[in-house]
């Protein structure tokens, strides 16, 4: 299996099938990060699509100074930032964007409540804290990788995460005590 960097080289040579492989391989990465950051399925799809188109446009200038995944996260994060500037953020995550049409069993309804509370708490974080928290706890990036994505030092990431965790613990205190 070709590495991301090899695929990017092929894309730069005009190989669209290599681009398709990259999209297939990283669609989840782009989509999940975009959804977590903007909390809206439609906006997340637009952002994920645009991120891949930017990858395509920039293929000839791409230099593998960091992992391709980090590079993609950086594009997605910037697009989400632009989106936030354009749109007044909804105070809650778009949990209802993929609702079950059938009546919910009690345990599912309860988990929906948890999801809604968590999404609201995440949405209320300042942008940089939210980016750091999502990249760390949902995308599993290291402090160094997060720093590369959001343009912060390792110490800065440490601080953002500490503040983000403290804010989330406060907002979700009722949930956490149950």
């Amino acid at each position: 299996m070709r590495s991301d960097e090899e695929l990017m080289s092929a894309v730069a040579e005009g190989d669209l099938s290599a681009f398709e492989q990259l999209v297939r391989r990283h669609q989840g990465t782009a989509w999940n990060a975009a959804f977590r950051l903007v909390g809206d399925v439609h906006a997340a799809e637009d952002i994920a699509q645009e991120a891949f188109l930017r990858v395509l446009r920039a293929a000839s200038r791409y230099r593998p100074t960091a992992a391709f995944r980090t590079y993609l996260y950086r594009i997605v994060t910037r697009l989400c930032c632009d989106h936030r500037r354009r749109i007044v953020a909804s105070p809650s995550g778009d949990v209802d964007a993929w609702p079950s049409q059938a009546p919910l069993p009690e345990d599912v309804a309860s988990s929906q409540e948890v999801h809604s509370s968590v999404n609201k708490a995440l949405a209320s974080l300042p942008a940089r804290q939210k980016e750091a928290v999502i990249l760390r706890y949902y995308e599993g990036l290291s402090y160094t990788e997060i720093g590369q994505v959001i343009g912060a030092t390792r110490k800065g990431v440490e601080r953002l995460l500490a503040r983000g965790r403290a804010a989330l613990a406060g907002k979700l205190s009722e949930l956490l005590e149950e």
């Binding site: 999209v23 669609q27 999940n32 399925v41 968590v118 706890y137 989330l168």
Partner: peptide, 24 residues
């Protein structure tokens, strides 16, 4: 806290996403 955060799934990637990207 981390367990609670991670219990919230993201919805799956929309069907046909790759195809739409390739068309674009």
């Amino acid at each position: 806290l981390l367990g609670t955060l991670r219990s919230v799934p993201a919805p799956p990637v929309p069907q046909g996403f790759v195809g739409r990207v390739m068309v674009m």
